[in-house]
Design a protein around this nucleic acid. Structure first.
Lengths: 146, 146
DNA sequence: GACTTTGGTCAGAGTCACTGACTAGTTTAG
DNA sequence: CTAAACTAGTCAGTGACTCTGACCAAAGTC
């Protein structure tokens, strides 16, 4: 009914993003990682290798400190993260990934690679490269934490 | 800390999408359309010019009928949509856009065009074309309603 | 040492989304 | 043509997500 090219770029970006996310969650659930939610995952993704402060997670995930705290609480209960004192600031604590989270991340990374492979097969090598190039460039003006 | 190119394509897709969405919502709110939520907007977006059935909206927005019904209720109360009987099926009703929604859509479209213009300025004409081309192609394997 | 900023929590409320169970028209098989 | 199967939509209940506002404690500033 609507011509393909009429869709705005936002929708065009969102469609494959959601497809990828759905695939990853399905695979994770199949591997037994079914005890966390998308919202929790979005926070977990942002945790750096040396741990990250709650406030920083909140900013990057674009939620309030309270929300981030709530999600981290649940992740902690489920055994995906630990909170350790920040040696440089006694007010703060660092949220760190636990082994369980690293295992889940491995599974997720595998699926992402798989889907990216499928996309490349569909688009061809040249267009895939162009796509990533354009998106990376776009990040400069759309990602506050670039 | 992390090299740009290390980011997976999913994140790369999501970043500009969210940037665009944020811009649109900010502009809408500024124009007085601050009485609906992102979830409601996602449903409203899917309503066709001649109205669309609730069940169809639910499928396309990837939520249950109940959720879609809830969101449409709120949109109806806020005056964005009307429900009219479906002449071809007495069980069904068509959810139609009201004038208020059309006005909001106009504002939104303007902002989308503006942002797309900015993106094109940053990327250049060639890369923009390549981006849209790749995304449109990708839609074939990622959009169930393509 | 008082003042401001920053990291984080607690309490309460509203929104979003789901499952399950149900009513009421529509379509289909015998 | 009637019973069974399907489809459109609603109601009730629950859990998940997110927000605002108030607050405490440690750092940093003057």
């Amino acid at each position: 009914m609507v011509a393909e090219s009429e869709l705005n770029t936002g929708v065009l970006l969102f469609l494959p993003y959601r497809a990828l996310e759905n695939r990853v969650f399905a695979a994770l659930a199949e591997s037994g990682f079914d005890d966390f939610t998308p919202a929790q995952a979005r926070v977990m993704q942002r945790i750096g290798p040396d741990g990250t402060r709650l406030t920083e997670l909140a900013e990057q995930a674009q939620v309030t400190k309270q929300t981030a705290g709530f999600l981290v609480d649940q992740l902690e209960k489920a055994g995906y993260v630990r909170r350790v004192p920040d040696p440089t600031d006694r007010r703060a604590r660092l949220v760190c990934l636990a082994d369980k989270a690293r295992a889940a991340k491995e599974t997720a990374d595998l699926v992402v690679a798989e889907v990216e492979q499928e996309w490349e097969e569909h688009l061809g090598k040249r267009r895939t490269k162009q796509l990533r190039e354009a998106l990376t460039l776009l990040r400069e003006i759309t990602d506050p934490w670039a």
